[in-house]
Design a protein around this nucleic acid. Structure first.
Length: 430
RNA sequence: GGGGAGAUACCCAAGUGGCCAACGGGGGCAGACUGUAAAUCUGUUGUCUCACGACUUCACAGGUUCGAAUCCUGUUCUCCCCA
């Protein structure tokens, strides 16, 4: 059986662990949990590190427990937040939980010998009255202890509500509950969760009695992944990169990985794939020989896109990327069937235009602006044409061009392009 | 309550009667280079017009003037100081 801590170490996933955690894991299969916030109805790339922690945990023979924070999501974690959060209502939370659960099932095995388990802390909190909570749980932790946590300290100047102040106790109780009821004595999380997790182990120590002495609870945290420039990993220009295809299409998802910088890409390969060290190092060597091919990024993109959206969607994303960015694919574009064209450009904004428009020819400016709305104004369209940034069916066009039926691909499609990355598809109807 | 400063385009910020569609910087977009990268260089960044040019725009509403972002009056908002 592979050693979980060793695995985390070489993959660069280990930031900190409580003394004794490694020894405990060496004793045999363990149960460990990670909490996920149901603040949206989809997980995003930023959650992937924690998902992979559970994946590796399971691969090492342990039993992962994924906790959906139905209750904690109603409170709001002050960690890393500079201001008070808005509370979600119960309906929204329920919906989000269901979606998050479905996504987790794509990564972790919920069947078999060490089947993963999914729990929702709302289930043990919904009937817990306030008085019972402060008597049974709050009694064991001092305010002094709670105030010493960074997440709280950082908010003392600007203010923190009692609700968010209590957050660590609520999360701490989760750990205790899982320890008591599910035999779970390990909690994992990002390094920003250290404070919350240790409140949990502290609570277990104080509430767990004899058992907690012979079988203590441990914490393991992962480093926070950042880009080379220090900014948050997992965001594109257009915001979060989601796992839900409705929010981030497979094409955009694939593109995100393709555009990861070299420094992060090597790290990502270790963190996000389950490949062996040898294979990863071999890919890295190949990449270094021919960096412009961006072998790491392509491997990453293919693996992750396939795992989340399936092989079919991944292949579409790869083909679409080739057509859109490979200059040599220009001729290929002309030979693609209408169906393939529509698949390749399914992500591209499009508009239907009457066939009659093209019969006597339409000026390129009018087409770019008035007819399609691709560019905001005629002035902008002319400017872009003058700058040489407009292409039609992958060929540069200048001002004064008139577009006719003979320019249409397959007789009814026209591909407009500004720069390298902005496409617009005209569908001719009628 | 009294006194002072200010409100300019996506952001910061110059401009205090015509040379202002408005300096400069950031950001955005594009071009060159390249690896769909980084760095760098270049162009561009109110609307309409092929263009001359026209129109709208400097918190809001009026006014003075041949002419206002710029002067006057009022309104709203922001900041600072004194009580």
């Amino acid at each position: 059986m592979r050693n979980y801590i060793e695995e985390l170490r070489w993959r660069g996933l280990l930031h900190d662990s409580m003394p004794g955690a490694e020894e405990q894991l060496a004793k045999g299969p363990q149960r460990g949990y990670i909490g996920f916030d149901p603040t949206a109805d989809s997980l995003h790339v930023g959650n992937m590190v924690q998902i992979m922690m559970l994946v590796h945990f399971q691969r090492c023979g342990n039993t992962p427990i994924a906790l959906v924070g139905g209750a904690t999501g109603m409170v709001g974690d002050p960690s890393g937040k500079s201001s008070e959060r808005n509370l979600l209502d119960e309906d929204a939370l329920r919906h989000n939980q269901a979606c998050v659960q479905a996504q987790l099932e794509r990564f972790i095995d919920f069947t078999g010998t060490n089947a993963a388990e999914l729990v929702n802390n709302y289930d043990w909190f919904k009937d817990m009255g306030f008085l019972r909570f402060i008597r049974e749980v709050g009694k064991h932790i001092t305010v002094n202890y709670m105030m010493a946590k960074d997440s709280v300290k950082n908010r003392l100047e600007t203010g923190i509500s009692f609700t968010e102040f209590s957050y660590q106790l609520v999360q701490g109780y989760d750990f205790y509950w899982l320890y008591k009821n599910k035999g779970c004595n390990l909690q994992m999380g990002g390094s920003d969760q250290w404070g919350n997790i240790t409140t949990g182990t502290e609570l277990i120590r104080r509430m767990g009695g004899e058992e907690a002495v012979s079988n203590p609870a441990f914490a393991i945290t992962t480093p926070l992944l950042t880009k080379a420039d220090g900014s948050k990993f997992g965001k594109s220009e257009s915001g979060n990169v989601w796992l839900d295809a409705k929010r981030t299409s497979p094409y955009k998802f694939y593109q995100f990985w393709l555009n990861v910088g070299d420094e992060e890409a090597a790290k990502c390969l270790r963190i996000f794939t389950t490949w062996e060290q040898e294979r990863i190092e071999s890919i890295e060597r190949d990449h270094k020989k021919l960096p412009h091919l961006r072998i790491i990024q392509r491997e990453l993109g293919r693996d992750l896109t396939a795992r989340i959206h399936g092989d079919r969607a991944m292949n579409h994303a790869v083909v679409a990327s080739n057509v859109m960015f490979d200059e040599e694919a220009v001729d290929g574009l002309l030979t693609l069937s209408r169906e393939d064209l529509l698949t390749v450009f399914e992500d591209v904004p499009s508009k239907e235009i009457e066939r009659s428009t093209f019969e006597s020819g339409v000026s390129i400016v009018e087409l770019l602006c008035d007819k399609t709305g691709f560019l905001a104004s005629r002035g902008e369209a002319k400017r872009a044409l003058k700058e040489g940034s407009i292409s039609m069916n992958k060929r540069k066009v200048g001002d004064g061009v008139s577009v006719t039926s003979s320019d249409l691909l397959n007789g009814d499609l026209l591909l407009l392009q500004r720069g390298k990355k902005n496409y617009f598809l005209v569908k001719v109807v009628g």
